[in-house]
Amino acid sequence: MQYRTIQFQPNSWQSRIAVVLGSALAIGVAVAFVLLSLTLAVILLPLVAILIAVGWWRWRKIQAAMREQAAAQQKRRGDGPTIEIDYRVAGDPDPNRRE
């Protein structure tokens, strides 16, 4: 079995320029990606904050409406008298026991 090794060495000025340009391109793409991410974050964070604030406001409004509706139902229904009676459970072994 014969093993071969490959060595990448810049032998000429063209290959050295290609390595430098490739590295510059890779760094440029990375910097562009970081700038794009930061730009999106700067744009989207205030929008998300506004949406959360509006949602919170609407939720509080819905809660207030539900509280008012429950209070109105309670008024309409009225607080009638509570009837308390003595009772005995059928089949209870101790008829004098009260809980």
Rank of each mutant, 00 (worst) to 15 (best):
F33W: 11
G28C: 04
W56I: 08
L47F: 10
P10C: 09
S37W: 10
A70T: 06
Q9L: 11
V48Q: 13
M1I: 03
V42H: 08
R76C: 01
Q2Y: 11
V19A: 09
A65H: 04
A64R: 07
E68N: 14
S23W: 10
A24R: 08
L38C: 02
A18Q: 01
P93G: 13
L45Y: 13
V20F: 02
V29C: 08
E84G: 00
L38D: 09
V20H: 01
S23M: 12
I27D: 01
S23D: 10
L40D: 12
V48M: 07
L44G: 04
D86K: 13
V31Y: 08
W13C: 01
A18S: 06
A90L: 15
R60A: 06
V42Y: 14
A18N: 04
G22Y: 00
D92I: 03
N11M: 04
T5N: 07
R88Q: 14
F33G: 05
L40Y: 08
V20G: 00
R4W: 08
D94V: 13
W59E: 06
Q7P: 00
K75G: 00
I27P: 00
L35P: 00
D92Y: 05
R98Y: 14
A41I: 04
R67A: 14
L51I: 05
L38R: 14
L40N: 13
I27K: 06
D86M: 06
V19T: 07
R76I: 12
W59N: 05
R58I: 02
I85Q: 15
L21W: 09
R67Y: 06
V31S: 05
F8G: 01
I62Y: 05
G28V: 03
L40Q: 12
L21R: 13
V20I: 15
Q74M: 10
A49K: 13
L47A: 08
P81Y: 04
A18G: 01
Y3P: 03
